[in-house]
Structure formats: structure tokens, C-alpha cells
Design a protein around this nucleic acid. Structure first.
Lengths: 347, 347
DNA sequence: CAATTTTATGTACGCGCGTACATTTTCTCA
DNA sequence: TGAGAAAATGTACGCGCGTACATAAAATTG
């Protein structure tokens, strides 16, 4: 059976194709009797407008693009982080009758975001896991200059005015470290993420501020770096273990690294009573599963996704002349420290 | 600045539009000099073919659809399960130059899968979380009859011959329960998922077989049901606790429920030494984070995603006359029991 | 009831590209 | 060098729909 198109419907209903279009789109005045006839004909033929042709004619794809970061080994969705954000975006896309188009960065070079719009692949897009590199900046700048509806999540760029939906990682980290200090720990190691991510740098700020406020001098030898994977946390265990006697507590930039580090230390034979206190970040599912349960900083990822999606879809409805989309959005949602056993002072 | 189209490129290069098309698509014989001129013109104008128009003209969207299940509260991506599968699909889609289109089931009725193809929204699609209900069956049957490239993951339908990429949950469950029996446990409770999912029924089969083989009679009062969420595991704790004296071990249909149940029991004040042994399912990240680490059945979700994607993309390349796509695929990948502390007999 | 407005429908075209077919140019070989 | 084959390019149209504009039908008014 061949798929019926507008033509057949028009024929069967005894009207012109334009009338069919109008009935189906609810455009213009239509006599009730005509509407009935058309609807019936469409029904009989099982007609559904071709979405591709509609998109082409309307010059709108109906897609909301989501740019995913490239992570080695491709298990990109594995992180709690992305899962939550995507769920948020997805729920709003559904509401707005948009489809979600997932776009994967290629391992090598920078992605040409502007091209997504020029080729009409998407009507709007949300960028996850952007890095602070010149190529990236340039690519995003093009979107801004072209007034395209886009939004970054959880990454901001110093000196640029981009649309960003962020969380307050300076404050979150500050609270985390302050908590450790209040617990009586003073030699607090920091397992941070790569500095190309603004949230890594933000965490560093918060970490430093808390130390400073407590009159603790920054000890560079207590700074470690991972890539947010559990494996990298595990790997960091070796370096941490080497100076374990000088470490009271560890603040990690996400839960996975914190847990990896814990596991690493244990696998190296560090006894439980010598384990430092721990605070993770993200408050992922894993945090409350840990032994001991992991104190962590809750980040409203789901909400970040919702708000970013609402923002870009909102821009889409504005007239080009409207000024709203020209004012770049920069919202910072608050984080919240969730205290569990891992960070409490043992007596 | 307006976006250049093929026409401008042709004009600038002094050739016809058709030639521009040919050069860009590498079709037909082209004089090298002409190719240069066209490429240069395209470069100068920053020309990129309009993907929407291309799709329309080619009558192929370039999209690989992924149907996501509707889960209440919308945190659909949260499960390890989907993360892994999506990563697998995503990696193959990327290889095949396809984009991933995420499609969300609406809460209520059945989704009209056939419509995805009729409207040309997708060229192929992969269906996750299908339930064994008549509407669902009918919808999938339409795809089969229309010889559309589709594939179900982790769900099969008795009596139908659909394209399915599955894992062997009968065997996986059998191994899990056998292991518990070998550890000396005999009164083994089973916290299963909803029976609308074939994998739930498969697990039940494996569970029964293992018991039978060991000469243990099935005790219906040891069967519990959750919905795969941690919360449902937590909720089941109440019922389980009521007859805790008669339970040596628990086999749960996924790790989240296992962990939820453990947490529930603890929160009800069940002392550690009275906790039953545990075996989970999926071998998610959470399994090795638990206290004690959770024995679990590893399911190759990532591979399921890869294979399903390869399958549908493969069907796409076949000529309609080719017979391969008519033979419904039904592959079952093996699972593997990963033994950790939670299931070991305490002396 | 004719002149006008309002409502309903039809006609015609463009969206940007792929591609079958027609035409022109270049090459080959006698 | 000229005829025929091969290579290169151009011409023309369709894909299915939205929609501006033209037209016809119905309603309104004086």
C-alpha cells in the first residue's frame, strides 16, 4: 500500500490541496461541511502529513539539538550528570512538541555549532560539556552573533556573554570545604576535574575561599586532578596514598572520583581507620549507596535541563526584533550540601 | 548575512546547479578544473547544503529513532540501563552518519510506531522498554508487515516474530539462584519486576528452574514485585520484613531494587547479622559501591545497543527485494554472574 | 435587487535539492 | 580529419507542503 499524500485526500474530498492544508492546520475560514469531508477523506486514506516535507516548507526542523560531549570509550550516557540533564531537557521538549536530536562531538576538532542552524538540522540547541578553549569560544560566539537560540549548561566563559544555565559551584565548594573545616579537618586534599571546565575552576575558587577564611594556607601538594571518571579517582589513589599521613580529608569534584579514590585507597591496603574524611559532588545516586554514605553537594541538574530547554524554546517564539533574546541569559542555580557519614569527624 | 544556497554557488562558479550538486556529492564524472572552481566558490560563500532540503529530496531523514519508555516522574534517563543502551546505539549511529532522534512515549496510550516512518521522521528505529500489551503488539506488527527497519531491545513477544536484540535472562536468573543455593541458602525470596516485561517472566523461569533442580518447592509467599525503581525496593522492605525469619536470601530483578530493599530493611531496624544474602541484576555501577558489594548479573547493555543499531542500519542498506530483513532477528546475548560479598554465606 | 463586503475556496508558486535525460564538449582511432 | 564513443555539463522537473494572491460564493446593506 502506497502512502497517501495531500493530493489524494483532496481528490477524495473533492476540494483543492490548499483546502486540505487549511483544514489540517486550522488556518483560515472553512465551511463546516467542507471540514467534515476533508477530515473524513484523510481518515479513510490514513493520511498523515509528511513531516519532512512540512519541515522543509516551513523551514523549521522541529528539532531541539543536544550536543553531547565526547568522552573516551563512548560510554557517554553513563554519568548521572547527563542522565539528569537530559531528562530535564526531554520533558520540556515533549511539552513543546519538539523532538530531541542528539548530536555527538567527534573526538578530534571543534564542532561547528553554527552549521547545525545553517543546515536546519535544529531550531535550537543546548550544549553540554563545553570546554573553555578558543575553538569552542569562537563556535559559540557565532551562535550569539547570529542570535540563534542556544544555551550552555554548567559552563561559563570569562569575558563572553553567552546564554548559560549554570549552578553555583563556587558556593557549593565553599560550603563543602567549610563543612570539613568545621568538622575539625585542616589538611584538606582536593581532587578536582580538568581546568578546561569552568566548574572546575569555580570549585577551586570555593575551595580556596573556605581555606582562606579559616586561615589555612593553600598547600599545592594537596591538589590532585582527575577527569571525572571513577577510574581517574582510582588512579589518583596512588598519589594520595603517598602523602596520606598529611591528609585529613578529601574534597572531590564529583562522586564518581570520590568513590574511585576510596576504592583505590582500600585496594592499596589503607585500613578503614586511616581513611580520610570525604566529600563528593553532584549528590548522585552513588552517594547514598557508598560505605560510608558519601557527603555530597547536590546540584539541580534536572532543573538545569528544564530551564535551559525552556529558555531556548522561548527564544524561538520571539520575533527577531524582540530584544529579549539579545540579553544573554546567565542564571546560577544554588547548590546544597548533603551531609552524610563520610565527612563526619570520627572520635 | 543571508545563507548561500546552491544557486549562488553555481553562479559564482559559472556552472549549473546540477554541477554543484554533483561536485558536492561526488556523483558522475567531473573535470578536475570544474571541481576546483565549485569547491572554491562553495568555500568562499560558506555554503553548506540545507539538510532539510536534502532529506526532503532524498526522502530519507537521516535519523535513527529511539523510543524511550514513559516512566512516571520523567527521570527516564536515570537508570543505568538506558544509559548503557543509548551509549551503544549512539556510537553506532555516529559511525553510520545518522543522527539520534529521541522519541518519548506519552503517558497514556500506545505509540503509533508506523507513523514515525510514514511521516519520515526516522529511517529506522529502536524501541526500548516495550511492554507486552495488545496495543504494543499491534503497533510493532505494523512495522514488521511494512518491513520497516526496527528492533526491540530486551523484550520479546511470545508468538510473534519480531526483530529483537535480547539477553538471556532465563539463564542469568538461573545462574544467580543456583549460586545462592550453592551457598547453602534455600529459602530464596524473589523481588521481580512487572510481568508485562518479558524479561520479568524470563527471570521467573530461571528462578523456578534453579529451585526445581535443587528440589526446592516454589513458595509463592516468597515472591514480591516492584517496578525496577529503588523506591519500589524500599517499599517492598515492609512485606519482606514481615516474614524475614523465613528468608535466607533475596534475588532482585535489578540492582536498584536490591539496594532499595536493603536500605528499607536497615531503616526498619533489621540488624546486619539478620540481613539475608542478596543478588541483584544488571551489574550496574551501584553494585560495586554497595556495602557489602552486591553480587549481580552482568547484562551487556552497551553491546545490545550496538547490535540493535547495527541491525537496523544494516536493514536500511538492503534492497527491498533482499530477503535478509524478512527474517526476523532474535539474538540472545549471554549474561554473566558477578559474585561479590553480598551473596556469600556468612559462617 | 444591485452594490458591496465578507467568507470560502481554488490557483500557482516556491522552498533547496537530487537526478533522469538532453545536450555539448572532448577524446579516440581509423 | 572526421565519425563515433566517452566524458562533461546543462535543462527540467519532482519531492509534499505552506501560503500569497486570485477568484468565486455567500452574506450584508442601502
Amino acid at each position: 500500500m502506497i502512502i497517501a499524500s495531500r493530493k489524494e485526500v483532496a481528490q477524495l474530498a473533492g476540494v483543492s490541496e490548499a483546502t486540505v492544508s487549511r483544514v489540517l492546520n486550522g488556518v483560515g475560514p472553512i465551511r463546516e461541511e467542507t471540514r467534515q469531508r476533508v477530515m473524513e477523506a484523510a481518515e479513510r486514506l490514513g493520511y498523515t502529513p509528511n513531516a519532512l516535507a512540512q519541515s522543509f516548507a516551513r523551514r523549521r526542523s522541529g528539532n531541539l539539538g543536544v550536543v553531547m560531549p565526547y568522552l573516551p570509550k563512548a560510554r557517554i550516557f553513563s554519568a548521572y550528570y547527563f542522565s539528569e540533564i537530559l531528562s530535564g531537557i526531554g520533558s520540556k521538549a515533549l511539552e513543546g512538541k519538539y523532538d530531541l536530536l542528539m548530536l555527538f562531538r567527534e573526538p578530534g576538532g571543534t564542532m561547528d555549532y553554527l552549521n547545525l542552524f545553517r543546515t536546519q538540522k535544529v531550531d535550537a540547541c543546548i550544549i553540554l560539556g563545553a570546554k573553555d578553549e578558543e575553538g569552542e569560544r569562537a563556535a559559540i560566539r557565532q551562535l550569539s552573533e547570529g542570535r540563534h537560540p542556544y544555551c550552555l549548561i554548567n559552563q561559563h566563559f570569562e569575558g563572553e556573554s553567552f546564554h548559560v544555565m549554570d549552578a553555583d559551584h563556587v558556593e557549593g565548594s565553599y560550603e563543602a570545604v567549610k563543612h570539613l573545616i568545621e568538622q575539625g579537618f585542616r589538611r584538606i586534599a582536593f581532587l578536582n576535574g580538568p581546568p578546561e571546565y569552568s566548574n572546575s575552576r569555580d570549585r577551586m575558587s570555593g575551595y580556596c575561599r573556605a581555606l582562606e577564611e579559616a586561615g589555612i594556607e593553600l598547600d599545592e601538594s594537596l591538589l590532585f586532578e582527575g577527569n571525572f571518571s571513577r577510574k581517574s579517582g582510582f588512579a589518583a589513589a596512588e598519589k594520595v596514598a603517598a602523602r596520606l599521613k598529611g591528609i585529613d580529608a578529601v574534597f572531590a569534584a564529583n562522586d564518581r572520583m570520590a568513590i574511585g579514590l576510596q576504592q583505590g585507597l582500600r585496594s592499596m591496603g589503607v585500613p578503614e581507620e586511616e581513611m580520610p574524611a570525604f566529600v563528593g559532588y553532584d549528590d548522585s545516586d552513588a552517594a547514598e549507596l557508598g560505605a560510608p554514605p558519601l557527603t555530597s553537594v547536590r546540584v539541580p541538574f534536572y532543573e538545569l535541563g528544564c530551564l535551559a530547554a525552556e529558555h531556548v524554546l522561548g527564544m524561538l517564539e520571539q520575533t527577531p526584533s524582540s530584544a529579549v533574546s539579545r540579553i544573554p541569559l546567565h542564571r546560577k542555580l544554588p547548590t546544597r550540601l548533603v551531609i552524610r557519614a563520610s565527612s563526619l569527624k570520627r572520635k
